[in-house]
């Protein structure tokens, strides 16, 4: 069970969290303006990174807030967590 550092509450076990997939994918302001190809990109295409992955978590059974995290998907170790709207911090790549 992972331990996840909620930027609002601190380190908590994984069971308190919901996973939210890849981070920093903004919903288009006017979806109607997008062609099918671009809309598909928003809907479905994900980096599925093997390595450092920026992703969303929600402290569901806690403060209930969404936040972002950098996690190495090769080890499941977190490098950072940060609030929604903040830029991903610079991390040294292991």
């Amino acid at each position: 069970m992972l331990i996840i550092n909620c930027p609002y509450c601190g380190a908590r076990p994984e069971l308190e969290f919901a996973y939210g997939g890849q981070a920093h994918i903004d919903r288009p302001v006017q979806p109607a303006d997008l062609n099918d190809e671009d809309w598909t990109g928003y809907l479905y295409l994900r980096e599925n990174t093997k390595g450092i992955h920026a992703e969303r978590w929600r402290h569901l059974h806690g403060c209930a807030r969404f936040f972002n995290a950098l996690r190495d998907t090769r080890t499941d170790h977190f490098l950072a967590t940060y609030k929604v709207g903040e830029k991903a911090p610079e991390v040294t790549r292991p």
Binding site: L2, E14, R74, D76
Partner: peptide
């Protein structure tokens, strides 16, 4: 598990 991963392992829970 609930998260994506390439570790070929998951949680005990």
């Amino acid at each position: 598990d609930i998260y994506t991963s390439y570790t070929q392992r998951g949680g005990l829970h």
